[in-house]
Design a protein around this nucleic acid. Structure first.
Length: 161
DNA sequence: GCCAACGTTGGC
DNA sequence: GCCAACGTTGGC
């Protein structure tokens, strides 16, 4: 991957959707995001092909476990229109959808997970949004140098991706 | 299960 | 526009 490639990080509870699930599915809609800042990143800034760190949250050892890639432009999240879906939004209308998503595809599983503790401790990763106090975003941008560093810590060669 | 931090909602 | 109440996130 090019030196100045910008990236992203998404959080997922592996019990709900894990990197294994993404590999099994081959591609998925990153649905259910109901935070405006996270939505805006997907809607306005994500570009097809950009790498996405896949982070497992709310588990014994929270960690980045793999790298996905953005696989589509943004489009309306269909779950907002489904009354039976937990992410149903009665205030959203099909002609003016409130929530958008992108598709993700698996790119590479890390050789070893990079734990939250490692992310916090690595001086190179100072300023990473994920570890900023109080941050609760489920979709966030990652600086090029941080992206490369996490991939290296995960035992992969960023050049090879 | 606890709780700190933060976003959203809605009354005023 | 303020702000209290409430819900959610997510580490621990």
């Amino acid at each position: 991957m090019a030196a100045m490639t910008r990236g992203w990080l998404v959080k997922s509870e592996p019990g709900a959707y894990s990197y294994d699930d993404l590999e099994r599915d081959g591609r998925t809609m990153w649905d259910g995001v109901r935070n405006y800042q996270a939505r805006n990143f997907m809607r306005d800034e994500m570009r097809v092909g950009e790498p996405v760190l896949f982070y497992h949250s709310n588990v014994g050892e929270p960690a980045v476990v793999g790298v996905a890639r953005v696989a589509s432009e943004a489009y309306a999240d269909p779950t907002q229109f489904d009354p039976d879906d937990p992410h149903f939004d009665p205030k959203s209308r099909p002609d003016t959808p409130r929530w958008t998503l992108v598709d993700l595809e698996p790119l590479a599983r890390l050789a070893r997970p990079v734990t939250l503790a490692e992310l916090r401790d690595d001086p190179t990763l100072e300023g990473l949004l994920l570890t900023r106090r109080g941050n609760r975003l489920s979709v966030m941008p990652v600086e090029p140098e941080h992206l490369r560093r996490v991939i290296e810590l995960g035992g992969l060669d960023p050049e090879a991706l």
